[in-house]
Design a binder for these strands. Structure first.
Length: 280
DNA sequence: ATGGCGACAGGATGTCGA
């Protein structure tokens, strides 16, 4: 099963490129971020024509997430809705940055983490609070049992290996200790970075700034990630960043990232107490 | 380089992203 994530920076501007990519790669599940459109205006038909179902959670101009899937999404949830106090939900619900759904017993959580602007900005405070809320949300999902796939645009380079020039950006936005610790607190060791299962010590980027010829100079960051329950690590056959779409005419500034997950030999014993899993 | 580049809303140019 191919599961992919892509910050497309406007679904309407990038539509034909996304359709081309789907035709070429044939993913089973594609999580999108920065769709930048209200739900009523999301172009659902081009995906349905290819046999996909579409779940959207968007808003005007900013943010917006969606899940495109061949398998029908079960238990779709939009925004933070569990494991968080009502005031948290209230605080975060105006920015559409999270959608989750179950597929064959795997809970797919698609996130667009706030950028945060700079460390002295109110937006940075919002980013850390949002990540803390995500940690609580994830705690609740883990409690419910089942495998988890947490993916999307995290706007954080987990280590200096994920930045083309770590010295230049040391301690700055997307590279700070505070953000990295907030991300670690989300993962809590129970989820692992799929990409680093295969690429232990290599430079690969998922985002290149539109400015300063960054893509041509290959000056990028790896800020788009697919985290998966540690129990599933043996089932991941590959994790690849497809950088080619970044070279398109009028590209997104992000590249798609995907994993190939083998579900054939998943150990169902892990879920012997989870009736929900067997109903699917 | 307090600038780059691109999308958006709106109908010029400011805001936002990363």
């Amino acid at each position: 099963m191919l599961i992919a994530t892509w910050n497309v920076n406007s679904i309407r501007t990038r539509l034909s490129q996304i359709i081309d990519w789907i035709n070429q790669v044939n993913p089973d599940i594609l999580c999108l971020q920065e769709t930048k459109v209200i739900d009523d205006s999301f172009p659902i038909e081009p995906f349905e024509k290819l046999g996909y179902s579409v779940e959207v959670y968007g808003q005007k101009s900013y943010n917006g997430v969606a899940i495109i899937s061949k398998i029908k999404a079960e238990n779709v949830k939009k925004g933070f809705c569990e494991g968080n106090s009502d005031e948290h939900i209230e605080f975060f619900q105006d920015q559409k940055r999270l959608i989750s759904a179950d597929f064959h017993g795997i809970k797919v959580i698609n996130v667009y983490v706030p950028n945060g602007s700079s460390l002295d900005s109110d937006k940075f405070d919002y980013k850390l609070k949002w990540l803390n809320c995500l940690a609580s949300f994830l705690d609740e999902q883990v409690k419910q049992g089942g495998f988890i796939c947490l993916m999307g645009d995290f706007n954080i380079a987990p280590s200096n290996l994920d930045i083309h020039d770590p010295k230049k950006y040391e301690g700055e936005i997307m590279a700070s200790k505070l953000e990295r610790n907030a991300l670690k607190n989300v993962l809590k060791g129970r989820l692992i970075d799929s990409f680093r299962i295969f690429e232990k010590n290599t430079d690969h980027w998922s985002w290149w700034d539109y400015r300063n010829n960054a893509y041509e100079l290959n000056k990028g960051w790896r800020i788009d990630h697919i985290y998966i329950s540690t129990e599933l690590s043996a089932n991941i056959k590959s994790c690849v960043i497809d950088s080619l779409p970044r070279g398109n005419i009028r590209p997104s500034d992000h590249a798609p990232v995907m994993i190939n997950l083998n579900l054939d030999d998943i150990n169902l014993d892990l879920f012997e107490d989870e009736d929900d899993f067997f109903e699917i």
